[in-house]
């Protein structure tokens, strides 16, 4: 019971990752593969964000930051800002890879008139 309560977040991300991974390697349609890649990346982003959580901590923004009476800031009162930063940049990389991959898919469709992987491999022979 203790194990379930303290680790269930990782299990959710692993199930999400398995769905995306299966779509990447099991499906034949290129767009479905791409959707699977997006699900995979989302699972990894959720995992990293969850490592930044702290019990009893608030978001990493100092309230009344420019007041005169600046009290000392304790690290235990604020969530870990580092995963948030890294995942903010990762989301942008996700959008970039998605755009370039869609452009490549459009190029493949222009040339082979299909998006099924086995048909493309058949046409390339």
């Amino acid at each position: 019971m203790e194990l379930i309560l303290s680790k269930y977040n990782y299990w959710i991300y692993i199930v999400l990752m398995m769905i995306g991974f299966y779509a990447m390697i099991g499906k034949r349609n290129l767009v479905k593969k791409l959707v699977g890649m997006n699900i995979f990346q989302t699972a990894i982003i959720l995992y990293f964000i969850s490592t930044g959580a702290k019990r009893g901590a608030t978001i990493p923004i100092v309230e009344h930051g420019h007041g005169e009476a600046m009290q000392a800031i304790h690290a235990a009162h604020y969530a870990n800002p580092l995963p948030h930063v890294l995942m903010l940049t990762t989301i942008v990389v996700m959008v970039s890879t998605f755009g370039v991959a869609l452009a490549l898919i459009i190029m493949i469709y222009r040339r082979y008139r299909t998006l099924e992987e086995d048909e493309i491999l058949e046409l390339r022979k």
Partner: peptide, 12 residues
């Protein structure tokens, strides 16, 4: 892995 929202996890 460290527990969910553990304040003493290595990342924190």
């Amino acid at each position: 892995m460290p527990d969910w929202s553990d304040p003493h996890s290595p990342a924190s």
